[in-house]
C-alpha cells in the first residue's frame, strides 16, 4: 500500500460494484466532493482509495417512467433546482434544493446522492425527500436493491459505508393541487438551518385530507411527524389546531441536538414552530 491514496474510476455500475466489493473500508466514493473533501482537508477522513463515480452514466439524468420520476444520484443541486420535470411535478424538492447552504458553488457540484448518504442532520434535502416518500436504489456486490429512504435511514449509521453506492432516487409526482412548503430557520443567507420542516398538504374545501410533515436539523435524523399529526385530517386549520400541532411536534423531539446552531431546548421549541409554519404555508398554497 502506497503512503498516498490510490484512485479508481469505474466506467459502469458493474465495475463500481466489483471495486467496492474488493476493497477494504478505507475506500471512499467521491462524486462532487462537497461532503468528503472538507473532512479530508481537516484530517478527519483519510481515504486509502478514492472511487470516482463521475464517469458512470447510470448515475446521471432525470427522467419520468411509468408515472414516477427518477433522479440519478450524481445529479447536482442546481439541476434539481432548474429541471422542468422536477419544477412542475416535485416543486417542493426543487425549492428545497435551492435552500441548500454553501452558495452557488456548492449547488453546482454537490449531488443529491451525496446529500442523502451524508445523512447530516443540518442538510436540506432529506426532510423533503422523506415527506415525498422517496425510494432509492442501492448497489452493492450482491446487486441492486430498492428500499424506502426512510428504511435506509433507520439502518444507517453514517452514509452507506464503503461497500454500497446510491444509484438513483424514485419519487412519485406530487398530487395536483397539493400545497407544499419548506421552512428553514437560519441566520445567514448561505448558512445551515437551526430547524427546518417540509410539509405537503391536500385540502377538500377547507378541511385537511392528507398531511405529510418532516422536521429536520433538530435531531440526529429528520423526524417524520405525519403519523403523530394524522388526526389533523378532517379538520380545518385554526389557531387552536396550529398551537396543538406546534406543541405535539416539539414533544416528538426526544433527543434534540445541542450545538453551535442553538441549544437543545430551543431547538425542540423551534421544531414545533417550523412544523406549524410549514403546514400553514402549505395550506395557503393548496387549492
Amino acid at each position: 500500500m502506497s503512503l498516498y491514496p490510490a484512485f479508481a474510476r469505474p466506467r459502469d455500475l458493474g465495475q463500481a460494484a466489483e471495486i467496492m466489493g474488493s476493497l477494504s473500508t478505507g475506500a471512499m466514493i467521491i462524486a462532487g466532493g462537497q461532503e468528503l473533501m472538507p473532512s479530508v482537508n481537516y484530517g478527519a477522513l483519510m481515504p486509502e482509495v478514492y472511487i470516482d463515480v463521475g464517469q458512470i452514466a447510470a448515475l446521471k439524468g432525470i427522467s419520468e417512467e411509468a408515472g414516477a420520476i427518477q433522479i440519478g444520484s450524481f445529479t447536482v443541486h442546481r439541476d434539481v433546482q432548474n429541471n422542468d420535470l422536477i419544477q412542475s411535478k416535485l416543486p417542493l424538492l426543487s425549492y428545497a434544493a435551492a435552500q441548500i447552504g454553501g452558495g452557488m458553488q456548492v449547488h453546482n457540484r454537490g449531488t443529491i446522492g451525496g446529500n442523502i448518504v451524508a445523512m447530516h442532520p443540518l442538510y436540506d434535502i432529506l426532510p423533503s425527500l422523506l415527506a415525498l416518500g422517496a425510494e432509492v436504489d442501492v448497489l452493492s456486490d450482491v446487486g441492486e436493491v430498492r428500499v424506502a429512504l426512510a428504511d435506509l435511514m433507520k439502518d444507517a449509521r453514517h452514509g452507506l459505508g464503503s461497500e454500497s453506492l446510491l444509484v438513483r432516487v424514485h419519487l412519485k409526482p406530487m398530487m395536483p393541487g397539493a400545497g407544499w412548503s419548506y421552512e428553514k430557520l437560519k441566520i445567514t443567507a448561505g448558512g445551515y438551518g437551526s430547524a427546518n420542516a417540509a410539509a405537503i398538504v391536500t385540502l377538500d374545501s377547507s378541511k385537511i385530507t392528507s398531511l405529510r410533515v418532516v422536521v429536520g436539523a433538530v435531531s440526529a435524523l429528520p423526524v417524520d411527524m405525519s403519523d403523530t399529526l394524522s388526526d389533523c385530517c378532517g379538520q380545518a386549520w385554526s389557531a387552536h389546531l396550529a398551537e396543538e400541532v406546534e406543541a405535539r411536534s416539539s414533544a416528538e423531539i426526544k433527543e434534540p441536538l445541542s450545538d453551535h446552531q442553538g441549544d437543545g431546548e430551543w431547538r425542540r421549541a423551534m421544531a414545533g414552530v417550523m412544523a406549524r409554519g410549514a403546514i400553514e404555508a402549505a395550506i395557503k398554497k393548496a387549492g
Binding site: I30, G33, Q34, M37, N41, G102, N108
Partner: peptide, 12 residues
Amino acid sequence: RVAKSCITLAAT
C-alpha cells in the same frame, strides 16, 4: 460553473 477549488478533487 463556479466551484470551490479547495473541496474539488483535481483527479475527478
